[in-house]
Design a protein around this nucleic acid. Sequence first.
DNA 1: AGTATGATTTCCT
DNA 2: GGAAATCATACTA
Length: 231
Amino acid sequence: MRDDRSGPLQAAFFDRNALEVAPALLGKLLVHEIDAETKIVGRVVETEAYTGDDAAFHAWGIIDGPTGSVVPSGRGYDLFAPPGNAYVYLCYGMYWMLNVVTEREGVAGCVLIRAVEPIAGINEMYERRPTAANDISLTDGPGKLTMAFGIDKDHHKQSLCSPPLYFAHGPPPAEAIRTSSRIGITRAVDHQWRYFLEGNPWVSKGTPSDVAAERRRERHRGRPKRRRNSS
DNA sequence: AGTATGATTTCCT
DNA sequence: GGAAATCATACTA
């Protein structure tokens, strides 16, 4: 069976560990076919992996395995869905985050799409992001790219292996793949599970969480002890 | 240029 | 009640 490089990436691509899928997605194209005339395309330049062995994961604490029962509660339950499904959730009450579910159905895992480089439909992206000052700020962050692409709750649990929203093959990236700690989390900050294309201007500007945690410790060093639990 | 803060909703303890 | 996989704006220097 030949690999059709012109169509959407199929479920088999996502049917493995998030730590493999996350770097493999770099250089792939995120495509949203809004309607017959409108197609928004971006090149993936930054991803993060989230796995079952991960305290920062939304599925953390949900029982996983053939003998244990999976308790279907909370948003994390949707991370046990089939590979290639979308996991879209609201972050800080305002911004939609786009994730692709990885691993076979029944095993939780996902990859967060953190930044893309605009390839097509740039005018449509500006319409959806009126505050963007330039092409870079259009899609250089996970909340920014979902705004630019018009991705929200309606895409949650939908398949990303067929239109309207899907990934496609692209040219192999010329940039080197680099890793770091993930951004914006407070648990499992030492996992180097963020992947990005070195030097690409669309990579988000956030501080990796291990660096942020170190800076916090530095700032609080020598200060009087924080009073806690004064209910 | 770097740092701080408000917005706003869902989930968890 | 508080934190959360963020972003835009208003500060300070």
